[in-house]
Structure formats: structure tokens, C-alpha cells
Design a protein around this nucleic acid. Structure first.
Ligand SMILES: Nc1ncnc2c1ncn2[C@@H]1O[C@H](COP(=O)(O)OP(=O)(O)OP(=O)(O)O)[C@@H](O)[C@H]1O
Length: 759
DNA sequence: CACATACGCGAAACG
DNA sequence: CGCGTATGTG
């Protein structure tokens, strides 16, 4: 087992060697904390600690997986596969499934994503008849999330005078009622949001000492990565679980704490010694990742922050090349300029696209960069943003799966009850929700007894709901005999989703169809890969808890585009930090407090320390924001860097002539687009006036029930048309009519004023 | 009930 | 600019 200590420096060795008691590993950027964690776990295993007694909490699933692979390499897969390794959310989601009964959930509980939560909040605001202007769902959700991360339950919130005062002051005094109702509805739906996963873990451990003790005994050794970005809820979980032995090892870098917006408390790492007075401190200070220039430049900036754990991160590598600073006139030119620099790097430095990353502050910046790279035919992959699983077509299909597993899942069921359209419209859904509210039950329970609702709903509607119910019940009956893949196949086929997406031949329609295929392929892989009895809930849980960088982007030699936040923990040969402008990086929202400026500075530190060999810093003097130009100045963070590390480069991605031309052409293109719009609008109006005028003749419409298929009709606006088919029973019957000038239309017969004509 | 178009309003970062 | 929703129309 000598291999464990191979390739470790002295500080790393120490951190790996001392496995008993509480340890704090302060790991400067690029100092090899991943290596320390891996080797420490290997060392635990070498000391005959069973792998299932080790709990290692990482920041992303990908990090967990990579670490698991490395450990598997050292000790073999048979041992490593029993390690409890994953993000807080995925580990405790598993435990909560197991212990669900103790907290009033089933083991099939749903995990709501942010969109689900926001929708639910909106409904609650409507139900409570609160002012929609004052109560913004996203803001309310943030407040609730914040409360949960600090373990303030709804009843505690309602009794906290300070919080109530604050909300009154902010003209949202009813938040505590929303919070309380939100919890009730979630529980009724057998659903938890992301914060609930941690909150209910705490409630579980608080109210069930026997269960807590079971896990305390189980997890003999606990390791936490990225400890500087844990929140209070996570902190309490670790603290409780570690008792009584306190074999807890946390690893982190206070200079890289960048998630306070979601409740992370840098104090957790700063005050580690308070909870564990006898802790050992290990400092990893040698940076193996980057050149001296990069490390020193990064240090020169982070030293402006107060309240740090003192450490001296240094690089043992060469001095390396200077940071390249480039000013561009516009964001568009910045994109093109960066693309050109990338091509230059690849052509002259013998590096690959995959060694290069473009890092930005906000996802909104990715588009213009992507367009520039495409223009120069540089392959790239974008992480984050609106993820695959948030797309409408994907969420719709997954909602069916969710409903099959947990029909109480209100958000999923209201999504699919009329998708694909089956004539159950908004009013019907409102009525069902009204009944559910009145009976204090779920929408699904109303649907199960929909026959009782005959005085509220007409027969046709009840019939449609019954059909929907039958279909869902059939899917559910299949559950015991099918896997996720076959179920999903049946769903898209039976519901008509497959046919509907296939029929749409528009460009976006094709995209949606491809996405559906991709979803199915993914499910297939999952079903084939995972071991024995994988339940559907496992699949749903896995995709609910994916992080942005977990999502497999068909890799292979592409430039990486991501936010600085996502880049945490990663490294690239060459990094481009773009959009380094005041009000963007640092963000406008951070301007009013020194504390948040410090966090932005840490974020900048993280960004810069991702680079191994070279870093480019770029900014643009003018940037489009919400469609119009805003001018900007260089970020203060660039100024903060000791100028001896920086070399300026001219950013004329376009010479002045072509800039003028491009601006002109941009300008004129815009103008043209506008005038083209005008033109088409004009044309449309023109069409209307010239074609419709003679057609809007006064004619006596026939009784809609007399219209027959395969006959010619006259329509007040659309003119002459041939009735292809008529479907449904009056008054809901619709006709598909091919109009000579207007193309095919579907019309509701009871509204369409049609007259049968002879040709 | 479904679809089209109009309009208003808002963007930080993430599991 | 781009999304979600309010509004109108058949
Ligand atoms: N003892 C060592 N000798 C040589 N290289 C090392 C050593 N330890 C770590 N490295 C290398 O240093 C690089 C950075 O390691 P790692 O990703 O673990 O850094 P980190 O501490 O997580 O940094 P950050 O906190 O900035 O993400 C890796 O490429 C790793 O292979």
C-alpha cells in the first residue's frame, strides 16, 4: 500500500496520513485537494475501514464519479463501489427515500425542480388572492429557500418577529402564509424541493434520535469537499452525523467561496476550530496547476479581501507567459477576437480545442461567443444555461413518468392533463383544482372520482378525463413488469406525443423530435448500465439532481464555454476570461456591499486560477443589453492585478475600415430587418385589404350542422375552401378546410360562418 | 377550447 | 432582445 503516498508532497502526505479525529485541509487553488481526498480514502481503506462506512460529500456528481474511478483504480471496483460518495443532495435524497415514512413521505417522493416550485408558488399566490405585483414568485421562492437553508421552518418563520417585520417592511407580509401553504402542498403532493432534501434530513435527525444514531454508527468517517461553500443546513447535518467520534475531514479554500447567494456560509470553514478544538490543520500551498505568473497575479488580487485564512499559495512551475489583456470596442468584436486568438493558439501552440475554455460571469454572454466561434468554424460545447431536462418537450414526457410513479405529483399532472391536447382546457383544470382544494385532496384523487363532479362538468368533459385516467392507470399497471425505457416508449406512443413531434416538420419541431430521441437513448443507457433492480425513481432522482457540468456534452476536442461558477474545480491549459467590465464582472447586483464585492473578487480568483499555462483577459467598451447598446469600462479586478503580470494587446479583430463597415452593416441590417418587418406587415395588411375586401360579402351562413365533408364552402375572411374532414360531435365539432388562398385551417364549426357553395 | 398576435416587463450565479 | 401572459377571434 505504499502506492497511497506516491506522488504526494509533504503537506499532502500529512493530510492523507492522519485519519483520526477532525481535520481541516486548507487547500489553495490547484494544490491537489482532489489527490489528497482520493489518497486519504485509499488510506482509510488500507486501515481496514469498510468502504460502506465512508461518506464523502462532493460538489458535483461528476467529481464524485471521477474520484470513485480513481479509487477503483487503486483498490479495485469491488471495494470502491460501496463508498457513499456524491453530492449532499443525492446522498441524502437516497437516505430520505429509505427513511421516508418517518417524515411523512413515501419512498417514491418526487423532487421538484425550480420551475415546479415557482409554478406552485404562483398558484398559492393566486389562491390566497394576493397582489401579483407585490408577490413575485421567484423572489418569494428565494426567501423560502433562504429560510430552509438556515433551518427556519414555516412555523418558526411565522413566529419570528424580525422576519415578519422585514416582510411587512418589504410590503410582502403574507410570505409566512405562502411558505406554510407551500410546505403543505408539497407534502400533499409527496414532493420535495432541493432545499427540502437537506431540511428534511435535518428534521429526520432531529426528531428520530434512533435513526440519527444508526447513521452515526454507519458513517465512521466523513469527508467533505469544497467545504467553504456549504450552507448552514449542510453544516448541521455533517456536525450531527460526525458525532460522537468526529472523524470528519473537510477540505476547502476560503478564497474560493462563491456560493453565498444560495446560502453558503464561509464561516463554516473559518470557524471549523470552534466546533472541533482539537482539530488538525493542514495547509496545501504549492500550486501544481499554473505558472508562477498566474498564481502570483491571482494572489495579488485576492489579497485585497479581508478576513482570510492566511496562506501563501505558490507555484513551483516556470514563470510562464504574461496575462494577455485585450480591449475590444464591442461585445461582437470581443467574440470574434477571442475566436481568432483561439485559432491562433491552436495553429501555433500545438494545443487542442479541448484545452481551451472561455469563462464568463453570466450565461447570457454565451450566445454571442458561440456565434463568433461558429463563424470561424471552431467547435465548442456550452455548459449550463437552459439545460436539456428543462426543455418543454422533455419535461412533458418526464412528467408522465413522474405521474406514473407518484400520481400525487400536482405539478406534473397539471402539465400533462391536456398535453397532448385532449380537450381538457384551463376552465376544466380550474374546476378540478377547485374540487381538490375544497376536499383537501389531490387533483389525481378528484380524477379518480371524477364521476362525482357531474354537476360541475358536462358529460363530454368527464368522458375525456376518464380516458386520461384509464391511460394513466394502464401505465401504472405496467410498472411492475417494465423498465424506464419501455415505459417511456409506451408513453410517447400511447399519448400521441411521438406522432405529434414527428409530424412537426419545422426546424424547431425537428429539434424537439431529436431531443425526444436523445432522452430515450439516455434512458436506455441508464437501464442497461445500472445494476439490478433499478427503480424508475432512481432514474428520476438522478436527472433531478444533475448539476450543470454533469450533463454529458458529446466531448471530443471542443472549446469549453461555461460560467465561472461552473468552472470551479476544473482546469484548462488556456483560459479566456471575457466580459471583464464594471457592472458585469463585478455584477451590478454586487455593487452595494463590500461583502458581495469580495465574493465577486473570489469569483475572479477562481476564474484566473483555472488556467494552467496562459490566461487572456478581455472586455468590451460597448455591449448589447436588452437589445440596446450600453457602454462600459474595464473591470476594477483587472486594475487590481499587479500590472507587471499583464501584457496589453491590440484588440482590433476588425480594422477600422471593416469596423465601420460592420457597424454600418449591423446598423443597416437592423434597419433592413425592421423595414423588412414593416414590409411584411405592410404586405399582410395589403393582402388583407386587397383580398379580403371583395370576399367580406354579406352572405347568410348555413347552419353549421349542415356542413358536410368533401364539399366547397365560402368563409367570410378566408374565402373559398374545400372541406376535407369533420371530426367530433357538435358543438365541439371541427372541420379541416383547405382554403384556396389561405391554406389549410382547422375551424370550430359552431363559430365559423360557412356557406356551402356549388362550384 | 385552441390558436394567434400584442404587449409588458425583466437578467447573476446553481442543486 | 426574448420570454411568459393577457387578449381577442373563430
Ligand atoms: N503532488 C503533486 N505533484 C504533482 N502534481 C500534482 C500534485 N498534487 C496535485 N497535482 C496536480 O495539480 C493539479 C490540481 O489539482 P486539483 O485539481 O486537485 O486542485 P485543487 O486543489 O482541487 O484546486 P482548486 O481548489 O483550485 O480546484 C492537478 O492537475 C493535479 O494532477
Amino acid at each position: 500500500m505504499n502506492g497511497i503516498f506516491e506522488g504526494l508532497n509533504e503537506a499532502q502526505k500529512q493530510a492523507v496520513e492522519h485519519i483520526q479525529g477532525a481535520s481541516l485541509v486548507i487547500a489553495g487553488a490547484g494544490s491537489g485537494k482532489t489527490r489528497v481526498l482520493t489518497c486519504r480514502i485509499a488510506n482509510l481503506l488500507a486501515h481496514n475501514v469498510p468502504s460502506h462506512s465512508i461518506l464523502a460529500l462532493t460538489f458535483t456528481n461528476k467529481a464524485a464519479q471521477e474520484m470513485k474511478e480513481r479509487i477503483a483504480h487503486m483498490v479495485g471496483n469491488d471495494v470502491s463501489k460501496h463508498l457513499w460518495m456524491g453530492t449532499f443532495h443525492s446522498i441524502f435524497a437516497k437516505i430520505l427515500r429509505f427513511e421516508s415514512a418517518a417524515i411523512g413521505f413515501t419512498s417514491n417522493y418526487t423532487i421538484y425542480d425550480t420551475q415546479d416550485s415557482r409554478n406552485l408558488i404562483s398558484k398559492i399566490i393566486a389562491d390566497l388572492k394576493l397582489d401579483k405585483e407585490a408577490y413575485k414568485p421567484a423572489a418569494i421562492l428565494a426567501t423560502i429557500s433562504n429560510a430552509k437553508n438556515n433551518l427556519i421552518t414555516a412555523p418558526v418563520y411565522a413566529q419570528n418577529i424580525d422576519l415578519i417585520k422585514r416582510d411587512s417592511f418589504n410590503k410582502v407580509p403574507e410570505i409566512h402564509r405562502i411558505y406554510s401553504l407551500y410546505n403543505v402542498r408539497c407534502k400533499q403532493a409527496d414532493a420535495m424541493d432541493f432545499d427540502d432534501l437537506l431540511m428534511y434530513t435535518n428534521i429526520l435527525f432531529r426528531d428520530h434520535p434512533a435513526i440519527l444514531e444508526k447513521y452515526q454508527k454507519k458513517f465512521q468517517y466523513i469527508l467533505v469537499d469544497e467545504y467553504q461553500d456549504t450552507n448552514f443546513s449542510q453544516y448541521v447535518i455533517v456536525k450531527k452525523l460526525a458525532l460522537p467520534q468526529n472523524n470528519v475531514c473537510v477540505v476547502g479554500d476560503d478564497a474560493q467561496s462563491i456560493y453565498s447567494f444560495r446560502g453558503a456560509k464561509i464561516e463554516n470553514i473559518l470557524k471549523f476550530g470552534k466546533d472541533y478544538p482539537h482539530y488538525r490543520l493542514f495547509k496545501l500551498e504549492q500550486n501544481y496547476r499554473s505558472t508562477q505568473t498566474i498564481v502570483n497575479a491571482a494572489n495579488s488580487i485576492i489579497k485585497k479581501n479581508k478576513n482570510q485564512i492566511p496562506k501563501n499559495t505558490f507555484s513551483g512551475q516556470d514563470i510562464g507567459s504574461s496575462l494577455t489583456l485585450i480591449e475590444y470596442v464591442t461585445d461582437f468584436e470581443e467574440g470574434i477576437g477571442v475566436a481568432k486568438e483561439i485559432q491562433l493558439l491552436v495553429d501555433t501552440n500545438n494545443c487542442r480545442y479541448q484545452d481551451i475554455a472561455i469563462l464568463y460571469r453570466t450565461n447570457a454572454q454565451s450566445r454571442i461567443l458561440e456565434e463568433a466561434l461558429n463563424k470561424l468554424r471552431i467547435p465548442c460545447k456550452i455548459f449550463g444555461g437552459t439545460a436539456f431536462f428543462q426543455r418543454k418537450e422533455i419535461k412533458d414526457i418526464l412528467s408522465y413518468v413522474r405521474v406514473c410513479v407518484n400520481p400525487k405529483d400536482e405539478e406534473a399532472i397539471t402539465r400533462i392533463i391536456n398535453y397532448p391536447m385532449r380537450g381538457i382546457g384551463q376552465t376544466t383544470v380550474d374546476k378540478i383544482r377547485f374540487l381538490a382544494l375544497k376536499a383537501n385532496c389531490t387533483v389525481w384523487e378528484v380524477i379518480l372520482n371524477i364521476e362525482h363532479a357531474h354537476e360541475l362538468l358536462n358529460k363530454g368533459t368527464i368522458n375525456k378525463i376518464q380516458n386520461f385516467r384509464t391511460m394513466i392507470l394502464e401505465f401504472q399497471n405496467d410498472l411492475p413488469h417494465t423498465d424506464a425505457y419501455s415505459l417511456m416508449n409506451r408513453i410517447i406512443e400511447k399519448t400521441g406525443i411521438y406522432q405529434e413531434l414527428k409530424a412537426d416538420s419545422s426546424l424547431e419541431g425537428k429539434g424537439r423530435f431529436d431531443n425526444m430521441q436523445e432522452l430515450l437513448n439516455g434512458v436506455k443507457d441508464f437501464v442497461e448500465q445500472e445494476e439490478e433492480n433499478i427503480a424508475l425513481t432512481d432514474y428520476l432522482e438522478k436527472i433531478a439532481l444533475l448539476t450543470d457540468i454533469d450533463i454529458e456534452n458529446d466531448a471530443h476536442n471542443k472549446v469549453t464555454l461555461m460560467t465561472v461558477h461552473s468552472a470551479k474545480g476544473l482546469e484548462f491549459e488556456h483560459c479566456f476570461l471575457v466580459g471583464l467590465e464594471e457592472n458585469l464582472f463585478p455584477s451590478q447586483m454586487s455593487m452595494n456591499s463590500e461583502k458581495s464585492i469580495e465574493e465577486e473578487r473570489r469569483l475572479f480568483y477562481v476564474a484566473l486560477t483555472r488556467a494552467k499555462k496562459s490566461a487572456y483577459l478581455t472586455f468590451a467598451l460597448s455591449r448589447r443589453k436588452w437589445g440596446n447598446h450600453t457602454s462600459s469600462v474595464m473591470s476594477r479586478f483587472v486594475k487590481d492585478i499587479d500590472s507587471s503580470y499583464i501584457q496589453q494587446k491590440q484588440g482590433n479583430s476588425l480594422d477600422s475600415f471593416s469596423r465601420a463597415k460592420s457597424q454600418f452593416s449591423n446598423f443597416s441590417r437592423k434597419k433592413m430587418a425592421d423595414s423588412q418587418n414593416q414590409a411584411t406587415i405592410g404586405l399582410r395588411n395589403f393582402k388583407k385589404t386587397t383580398q379580403k375586401k371583395p370576399i367580406i360579402l354579406n352572405f347568410e351562413a348555413d347552419n353549421p350542422q349542415d356542413i358536410r365533408e368533401k364539399t366547397w364552402v365560402l368563409h367570410a375572411k378566408f374565402g373559398k375552401g374545400f372541406v376535407q374532414t369533420i371530426t367530433g360531435e357538435f358543438p365541439e365539432s371541427t372541420a379541416v378546410i383547405d382554403f384556396e388562398n389561405e391554406g389549410q385551417k382547422r375551424l370550430l364549426l359552431k363559430f365559423a360562418k360557412l356557406k356551402q357553395i356549388e362550384l
